[in-house]
Amino acid sequence: MLEGKFESASLMKRLVEAIKDSVKLCNFNCSQTKGITLQAIDDSRVLLISLKLDPGCFEGFRCDKNLVLGLDLESLSKVLKQGNNEDYLTLIAEDAPDNLLVVFEDPKKDRISEFSLKLMDIDSDVLSIEDMDHDCSITLPSSDFAKVARDMRTLSESLQILVTKDSVKFMASGPIGTGSVIIKAHTDLKDGKESIKIDLNKSVNVTFGAKYLNDIVKASTLAETVTIKLTNKIPALFEFKLQGGYLRYYLAPKFDE
């Protein structure tokens, strides 16, 4: 039996909103030691999502037997919208489940709502992602990155990212003109989360589809900072750290012409 209780429904609500536009059907893998993990690739095979929610992400977590819960994220999103952000959220499944039970309790305990969601058999392709060495790592406020990704998309379908020792340059060029945003490394002593950190082994010049970057920045509601690991000509990693877990996106670059 699986029983995973979140202190608030808000984490799961934000997670599903962050990924449901990229992938529709997902297998949630549940185990006592690893908690809940998920890997899903978008239909175009350009963007991969990897989610880890350690047992420590939950107020209570019990999983007697490894389970795979095949879920339609559109349906899960509909159910999660029934609960309030501050509600306790508990996910419950039997050992060979046909359904996932989603229970919201309002913190004052005067209201309990229960929903049963049908599970699906999902035949998903799982890719082996090994730890990669990257040419550079950038950590910046996730809202700053979201703004750049959203703004630059209005200029072009592609966003070029150039990283040098102490700055990151975002460039877009399209039918109406061109634009660039340069951000420099700095340390904010008052609020460390506002700092911009650049670790560089080698300068990087890489281009991504703006559409995918706009999907990725939907996760900026989950973490105040995002870490972007880039290497020339190989997929990039965008990581949003969660309390006791992470949401990672791997994005394939565009070809050099």
Binding site: I41, S44, R45, V46, L47, L48, D125, V126, L127, S128, I129, S158, T207, G209, I234, P235, Y250, A252, P253, K254, F255, E257
Partner: peptide, 13 residues
């Protein structure tokens, strides 16, 4: 600019 696929970099399990 053509888009690369993740499957050119990562093996299927």
């Amino acid at each position: 600019m053509p888009q690369q696929l993740l499957t050119s970099f990562f093996r299927s399990q």
